[in-house]
């Protein structure tokens, strides 16, 4: 198929960007969206132009790097997928596709479609871990009984890949789905209890410091999240913070 692409081009974080139109031809419907971008970049390099910078790594929906806002939705129109898992069969011959970087004050554009998501790293560093003495006497994790229900819910929360689609989608640029998932993953397990109060307090404080917005429960994040992280995780984080503040 033949497509018109409207892509955000921006030289660096200090330069103003703008939308630029490109044409690509002979795109196979079996290609992934990133492969289509590869075709475009090959074309641009052959013409001696600057290729479009975009983030990617695993190309199999695991690393969370491929951060594109396609036709007004994070990771495009399909559900439960990252951009690398988005197939060109979701589009029609002759379509015009708008491609923008993830937008949020806390995710500044580095170049073209590449944004800086290290704010997420700093939130994780503020409490997204458990402290374990690894001197050799570590208790076998299997010796701690955990109910199937709690284990499943913790696992669901832990599938968050930190892609930032929730922030990009949110009209308030709120990071609460991400932070809710990270808080829940530990709050649900016995290993997470000891540091639970400090964890939620510190992670929420870092989230606020990074300049993410306030959740208004539109639920857009849950719909656009490639891993189907549920809003229940935000409710749990709210409960955890209330609990931590009362104690």
């Amino acid at each position: 198929m033949n497509l018109t692409l409207k892509i955000w081009r921006q030289k660096d974080s200090n330069t103003k960007g703008q939308m630029v139109d490109y044409k690509v031809t002979d795109i196979s419907e079996h290609m992934s969206f990133l492969e289509m971008m590869d075709v475009l970049n090959e074309q641009l390099i052959n013409k001696g132009e600057e290729p479009v910078a975009f983030d990617h790594d695993c190309r199999e929906g695991i690393c969370g790097m491929c951060s594109m806002y396609i036709n007004g939705e994070a990771h495009g129109p399909d559900r439960g997928v990252t951009t690398c898992q988005l197939h060109m069969r979701m589009f029609k011959d002759g379509d015009t596709i708008t491609i923008e970087p993830f937008r949020a004050k806390a995710f500044p554009v580095i170049k073209d479609l590449v944004v800086d998501r290290s704010a997420f790293e700093r939130i994780q560093q503020a409490g997204g871990y458990i402290s374990v003495n690894t001197s050799g006497n570590t208790q076998d994790a299997n010796s701690i009984p955990i109910s199937k229900h709690a284990a499943d819910e913790a696992m669901d929360a832990a599938t968050c890949i930190g892609c930032g689609a929730c922030v990009a989608t949110c009209k308030n640029s709120s990071a609460m789905l991400f932070v809710g998932a990270k808080v829940s993953q530990y709050a649900l397990l016995p290993q997470g209890q000891i540091e639970a109060a400090d964890r939620v307090r510190n992670m929420v404080a870092q989230m606020d410091l990074e300049g993410f917005g306030n959740c208004t429960n539109t639920g857009a994040c849950e719909i656009e999240c490639p891993k189907g992280i549920s809003l229940d995780n935000i409710a749990r984080m709210n409960r955890e913070l209330m609990k931590a503040s009362l104690s």
């Binding site: 007004g72 708008t98 937008r103 949020a104 640029s173 917005g213 306030n214 208004t216 639920g219 656009e224």
Partner: peptide
């Protein structure tokens, strides 16, 4: 506050796809 947290708005944003 939330408007400020967004910064540069999207050229194309399909809010109806994921929220009421």
């Amino acid at each position: 506050k939330n408007k400020k947290a967004l910064g540069v708005p999207y050229v194309k944003n399909n809010g109806a796809a994921n929220s009421s």
